[in-house]
């Protein structure tokens, strides 16, 4: 049970964003995909669930070759992979309850369950997922426009969790959030991944976040993998881009933590 990329390439016009990229994701781990903007991080994520088609190469999700699946078969893969988008992507016309319950009423979910869930069970699951993302049931009847951006992100996460996916894919989960909410979302990703024992892939350019919660980190640049390693090993990297990322991250740390981290990095 894992996700594997095998020599995957993808171009947009003349720009090659992925150039024969190969890597795998181990079951239960949190993999961080880091890189500058426009380096194919989100493209990598979207290709896993067939929202974008790879030009060449193979992508396996639980031994299913995603690039060869039709729309119906892809719907099955998407049920296994819950995706949290850069924007909260909540349906404006539905309440929080209806948004979270959306994935519990789809034909794919009903097929997987062997029948529709009773309304009491849907209610129970929605409330359970809401408490997992630390939101109270007061928000259930509200519309997304009545919530703060941070709360919308949490509801989006609850909606993704509702159908109990095996994989969680996060596309820039902390973009547009203040530092406190960013920390809270990062902790949430870590805690949920470990608590629910799901495999998580997080696309971000937030090195501090990667150093905090990632089991392994994959750095993409110019369509190639620059590093695919543990966070401890990443700190020892001599790649200029990674050093730049690290020094930018260190600058944001409090003075005492910064000195400690700088000593650790420069010791290499």
């Amino acid at each position: 049970m894992s996700i594997r990329f095998d020599r995957v390439s993808k171009s947009f016009g003349t720009k090659r964003v992925l150039d024969e990229v190969s890597f795998d994701v181990k079951t239960g781990e949190i993999l961080f995909i880091l890189g500058r903007s426009g380096m194919g991080k989100s493209v990598t994520l979207k290709q896993m669930i067939g929202l974008l088609k790879a030009d060449s190469g193979n992508i396996f999700v639980d031994d299913q070759e995603v690039t060869r699946l039709n729309e119906n078969q892809l719907a099955g893969v998407r049920q296994k992979c819950g995706m949290v988008f850069q924007h909260p992507a909540l349906l404006d016309s539905l309440t929080v309850f209806e948004n979270i319950a959306f994935g519990l009423k789809t034909p794919q979910f009903i097929k997987r369950q062997g029948g529709p869930l009773p309304s009491e069970e849907i209610q129970r699951r929605v409330q359970q997922k809401l408490s997992l993302v630390h939101l109270s049931t007061d928000v259930l009847e509200r519309f997304p426009s009545e919530l703060s951006y941070g709360m919308q992100k949490r509801v989006s996460l609850a909606r993704t969790l509702a159908p109990s996916p095996s994989y969680l894919l996060f596309d820039e989960p902390t973009t547009g959030l203040d530092p406190i909410t960013t920390n809270a979302i990062n902790d949430l990703i870590h805690d949920l991944s470990k608590k629910l024992q799901v495999t998580s892939i997080v696309v971000s350019h937030d090195m501090a976040c990667a150093l905090k919660i990632a089991d392994r980190v994959l750095v993409l640049d110019q369509g190639k993998i620059l590093a695919h390693t543990t966070r401890a090993q990443l700190k020892l990297s001599k790649e200029p881009l990674i050093r730049d990322f690290l020094s930018e991250t260190l600058a944001l740390l409090p003075p005492e933590e910064r000195a400690e981290a700088r000593a650790e990095v420069t010791a290499t």
């Binding site: 669930i49 349906l91 959306f102 994935g103 909606r159």
Partner: peptide, 11 residues
Amino acid sequence: EQIDAIECLGT
């Protein structure tokens, strides 16, 4: 990305 989200949720 609301349309992508709908697709990802199996609809």
